[in-house]
Design a protein around this nucleic acid. Structure first.
Lengths: 128, 128
DNA sequence: CAGAATCCAATAAGATACTG
DNA sequence: CAGTATCTTATTGGATTCTG
């Protein structure tokens, strides 16, 4: 594997890395990965309760996609009632640092962005 | 500013940081910011040509949103024909590192993800 | 408990044609 | 050149109801 670099170009349409980026940059994916990263193995209901505002449909969809991408491991315990656990795979763990960098940035710069938006809106109001 | 931490919680609905995260995680936003980070100041047409597949509508929308958020500076040169430059603001520059971490991850792990998807599809085919 | 299925409203995205 | 305006399609997302 030494010396191999991926030959993909994010700036080309149809690039699979571009699609992947889009999926992990997804609203709920970021939050689900973040939660599983912080809390470790969690159940469906736990996730639903922690991710304020998520619908069951979106949570299921997101979890399935992440599972399919090999980022999340889904384990079904055959009891009654059934118990399902979700946790990050090894691959999913490698995504924690980059994602945390982004979420940290977002938290730290929200003030500035809100101020910029207000200023922009005021400018538009005046200008046009 | 010492000791101040933002009081927002990404896991709460309506959190402005959550919304912001969603905007910068957007498909075209990531690519526009990446391009401006790599190439520096660019014109509208240059961006359109470099971002394969983007429509003028989406490019305009994305640039306006980034400008409004204070991440991109738009400069109009009053000539005929008009010339418009886009470049990262200081705030936009601070986003380069986190975003690059994410795009790098994406490029480096696309193979694994594609393999995982294939395996998942095969499993589903068998199982159900 | 952990979803699956269905329906519907809202929004986003793309193509196309036009303009200061 | 750098958009804007308009139209149409696709996709998203949420609410609701039902089930092994």
């Amino acid at each position: 594997m030494i010396g191999t670099t991926s030959s993909w170009d994010l700036y080309e349409r149809g690039c699979p890395s571009r699609d992947l980026l889009d999926r992990i940059g997804d609203k709920w994916s970021i939050l689900v990965l973040g939660e599983l990263g912080e809390h470790g193995r969690s159940r469906f209901t736990e996730l639903r309760n922690r991710l304020s505002g998520v619908s069951e449909k979106m949570l299921t969809q997101t979890l399935r996609a992440l599972e399919s991408d090999g980022l999340v491991l889904r384990t079904v315990h055959a009891r009654v009632p059934v118990r399902v656990d979700y946790e990050l795979t090894a691959l999913g763990q490698t995504l924690r640092a980059p994602l945390r960098a982004l979420t940290e940035w977002s938290l730290q710069h929200t003030d500035e962005v809100l101020a910029a938006r207000a200023a922009y809106a005021a400018r538009v109001e005046q200008g046009a």
